[in-house]
């Protein structure tokens, strides 16, 4: 046959492509939020928000969770299942810790008198952290159900790195404005 069929021999698996597509969707969500943030920032009623030092701790925790999960995939690839499990559980626990830390940051801001409707800056802070947190929580729940194979672990870790990068960008924007 002269026309060698090429469509079915793409090295991507459906699951991998599906995850990357979902990352594109999530990128659009955060891009829309960020552009709204930047537009709304220009209004005269915008006041800068106090930044609880806790946020730096949270950011570090999330980075560690990403690192632990990366370590888990490397261990899995090398056949060290025990280490991979430890890395996965450590990553999940650190992520849960991050989420608790974010909720704690809400409590801190609340105590300082910054509620959801105090100022657009606080509205955005709660909104951005909530949308990001929901993505993390959803990821953890899906992972608890589905991470059974090496490939799925890798996909989960890709998603996690993505959420870490998104948080670092959101955090940077919040700290700078």
């Amino acid at each position: 046959m002269t026309n060698s069929p090429n469509g079915h021999r793409v090295p991507l698996t459906p699951a991998r492509l599906g995850v990357w597509l979902f990352l594109a969707v999530a990128t659009m969500i955060f891009a829309a939020l960020l552009s709204a943030y930047i537009v709304r920032m220009g209004s005269s009623d915008w006041h800068s928000l106090p930044k609880p030092g806790l946020l730096w701790v949270n950011t570090a925790i999330l980075l560690f969770s990403s690192a632990a999960l990366q370590w888990a995939t490397i261990a899995e690839r090398q056949g060290a299942h025990r280490n991979a499990q430890i890395g996965f559980v450590a990553g999940a626990v650190l992520s849960a810790l991050f989420l608790l830390g974010q909720i704690w940051a809400w409590v801190v801001l609340h105590k300082l008198g910054y509620f959801l409707n105090t100022n657009p800056s606080s509205s955005f802070f709660y909104l951005l952290t909530a949308v990001h947190g929901v993505h993390l929580l959803g990821g953890l729940i899906v992972a608890a159900w589905t991470v059974r194979t090496t490939e799925r672990l890798q996909l989960f870790v890709i998603y996690w790195h993505f959420l870490t990068v998104v948080w670092v960008m959101l955090f940077g924007l919040i700290v700078l404005t």
Partner: peptide, 19 residues
């Protein structure tokens, strides 16, 4: 739905079904 449609078109075409 969209994730499914795009992935299916890109990944599940039969032998000979080029884009």
């Amino acid at each position: 739905g969209g994730l499914n449609y795009v992935t299916t078109v890109l990944q599940c075409r039969t032998k000979g079904m080029t884009l």
